[in-house]
């Protein structure tokens, strides 16, 4: 019984992290149609900045988190304004834009990763912060994991309220339905799209800050997280925040079960799940029908 609980709660906490990792990509692709394959690199940079500030200046990761949120939002916004808005202009169709932005993000991935390697090197890094165990129904879990889960649930809640209650939130939802219709309603679509990319970058950076408290980090870890984010958003439906929460939790629990049975096959199981889902229900578990 305790084993079962361990697996389940462990999966839930893992799922919270996965959901957080995926949320940013979900907005960037779901609304902006940018399949940001450099997403994991944003996360990596967030993690390394947090590590750097903590080990060199002793700044608490929770303070870095706020700092990172602002900086990444700003850079995300600039990046969309400069790069992706130009690609939107030169691409003849949405499909062409998706292909172009995918390749641009792949280039971006190299740029970010290699700048990071130049600054921080390629070796493993890590620190421990708020790792003291907390007892949940007889099973022990690090406090930092609980904070991460709380943060991702909080972010999901804030976004849900933002999307349903505010003017810009509604604009984003309209844009994710139909870019042309959104234009007709007098919404400044370009601004909304840049906003989405900026939010995505913000989420990636803060996720990195939280992850740095729990796992060892290194400058080449980005792709792993991009892949996890891809799996989660396909699971939850592209562009749905609540979907990626659900997708993250499902993936977390599946991962927890598989790694209990055969740890070496966890990633294999993730990819199997990913591909089967793409074939059976490409719009995701929560997505709109095709």
């Amino acid at each position: 019984m305790v084993t079962f609980l361990n697996i389940f709660i462990g999966g839930l906490l893992m799922g919270g992290i996965y959901a957080l990792v995926a949320a940013g990509l979900s907005i960037q692709y779901g609304v902006g149609r940018v399949l940001n394959i450099a997403h994991g690199e944003f996360l990596m940079v967030g993690a390394l900045i947090t590590w750097y500030l903590f080990t060199i200046y002793g700044i608490s990761p929770l303070i870095s988190l706020i700092l990172i949120a602002f900086v990444f939002f700003f850079f995300g916004f600039l990046l969309d304004r400069s790069l992706f808005s130009r690609l939107r202009n030169i691409s003849p169709s949405v499909a062409a834009f998706e292909a172009n932005s995918l390749m641009a993000c792949f280039g971006l991935q190299f740029v970010i990763q290699n700048i990071a390697i130049v600054i921080w090197g390629a070796e493993l890094k890590g620190f421990s912060y708020m790792a003291s165990p907390v007892n949940i129904l007889g099973a022990l879990f690090g406090a930092n994991r609980l904070i991460t889960l709380a943060y991702s649930l909080g972010i999901a809640g804030i976004f849900y309220l933002f999307l349903t209650k505010t003017r810009y939130g509604k604009a984003i939802r309209a844009a994710s339905q139909d870019i042309f219709a959104a234009n007709l309603m007098g919404i400044n679509i370009k601004f909304v799209l840049s906003l989405c990319f900026a939010f995505g970058a913000l989420l990636a950076g803060t996720a990195g800050a939280l992850i740095s408290m729990m796992y060892s980090i290194h400058t080449t870890m980005g792709m792993e997280y991009t892949v996890i984010a891809l799996i989660v958003i396909v699971l939850g439906g592209l562009g749905s925040i609540t979907g990626s929460m659900l997708g993250g939790l499902i993936l977390g629990i599946v991962g927890s079960i598989v790694s209990y049975l055969e740890p070496g096959l966890t990633l294999v199981a993730y990819y199997m799940l990913f591909m089967i889902l793409l074939l059976v229900r490409p719009t995701g578990l929560m997505g709109r029908g095709s």
Partner: peptide
């Protein structure tokens, strides 16, 4: 056979996943 009916970005993601699946299965 299994995936060419997927359109656009979904086919790209599927093929990407296929490589990773193959890699991790072989590693294991």
């Amino acid at each position: 056979i299994v995936s060419l009916r997927l359109k656009g970005i979904y086919f790209a993601m599927f093929t990407f996943g296929f490589v990773e699946l193959l890699l991790h299965f072989l590693l294991w």
